[in-house]
């Protein structure tokens, strides 16, 4: 080892350092961490709060385990026109960490090259609503987004409708009608739209005793069936939608009679209340378009004589007496990345 070598090597290294420092692009691809946690948190916050995710229709939150790979991006916004308005069904799907693994959050929401750790939380009025991820270490990147959560409406049919929906010469049919052309009307702001394709339809009949016939204490719900009509076809008429009416599937619907869950052909006596929640996953099976009319038909049948006088058509629409739509709920979405 000679002095010449040492001098030459030093000069070479100096030259190398100069070249490296003069070409910033050489280091641009270098995976740096530390200060960019805030930047990643910001980006993730934007994706979650301002983007509806991809695919949009059918929406990503409806993908089942087998089709999880089709989810490209998880965004929580109702639509791309309504930043910071989150859809509750998307929120619930997103925070379901038994469905999404850590890797899913990294590849569909954070989009980092290196496996960042994360903590997402959604809280409202100081109460933590949803949370997923690890506990926070010191020195994490952070962003806080103030949002509002849109929750689905409920059609509550209580005793105030009793005179309207009873008739002594009834066929014991009660129909809840969803007119998609009215519901999905483009003039309604997406933040306030009733969209059965992305939100559950909730029909709750309370005070059912008011609809019973005279001295009867209960009536038998034979079945709940779905009917559709496409008014754009010539001679439109309602046709029964083929559906697995006899299988209980909480992913598609929930029907409970006096608090007891059942399938859609219960043939069970009911005395006080009926609750049906039709999930968007079921609505997507019905192959409806934006002109369709969907009927949810409750049929009652008793062996001896009619136990209930319920009849009529309840419109599931923007009329506040027909469907109670909750106010947008203020909340805070926090994203921490490290």
């Amino acid at each position: 080892m000679s002095l010449d070598f040492l001098a030459g090597f030093t000069i070479f290294l100096l030259a190398l350092i100069m070249v490296v420092s003069m070409v910033p692009g050489l280091l641009a691809g270098l995976e740096s961490s530390g200060i960019d946690y805030d930047a990643v948190a910001y980006r993730t916050g934007v994706i979650l709060a301002e983007d509806p995710g991809w695919p949009v229709y059918p929406p990503w939150e409806m993908k089942t385990d087998a089709y999880k790979d089709e989810i490209e991006r998880m965004g929580l916004a109702v639509s791309k026109e309504t930043p910071n308005i989150l859809l509750s069904t998307k929120v619930n799907a997103f925070f379901n960490d038994s469905f999404f693994a850590e890797e899913d959050y990294r590849s569909k929401a954070i989009f980092g090259d290196i496996p960042y750790s994360y903590n997402f939380s959604l809280s409202s009025g100081g109460v933590l609503l949803n949370q997923t991820g690890d506990t926070l270490p010191p020195g994490y990147g952070y962003i806080r987004r103030v949002v509002k959560i849109k929750e689905p409406g409920v059609a509550v049919i209580n005793d105030s409708f009793a005179s309207q929906y009873t008739s002594s010469s009834s066929a014991q049919n009660f129909t809840v009608r969803l007119n998609f052309s009215r519901l999905l009307n483009a003039s309604i702001d997406p933040a306030y739209r009733i969209d059965p394709r992305t939100e559950p339809v909730n029909v709750t009949i309370t005070d059912f005793s008011e609809y019973l016939n005279g001295s009867c204490s209960d009536a038998t719900l034979k079945d709940v069936t779905f009917w559709k009509m496409d008014p754009t076809t010539p001679m439109p008429r309602f046709s029964r939608i083929p559906f697995s009416y006899n299988t209980m599937d909480p992913n598609l619907y929930n029907l409970s009679l006096d608090g007891t869950p059942t399938d859609l052909a219960p043939e069970t006596k009911v005395a006080e209340n009926i609750t049906l929640v039709l999930k968007p996953a079921a609505t997507s099976l019905f192959t409806l378009d934006q002109n369709s009319i969907l009927d949810i038909r409750f049929t009652f049948e008793d062996t001896d004589y009619p136990h209930t006088n319920i009849t009529g058509i309840h419109h599931y629409d923007y009329n506040a007496t027909n469907v109670t739509r909750p106010d947008l709920k203020p909340a805070v979405l926090e994203v921490a990345i490290w």
């Binding site: 910033p24 280091l27 740096s32 530390g34 200060i35 960019d36 805030d38 930047a39 910001y42």
Partner: peptide
Amino acid sequence: IINQSALVGQTT
């Protein structure tokens, strides 16, 4: 490298 990572945060 530390210098560059600071720049990432700053530019963002």
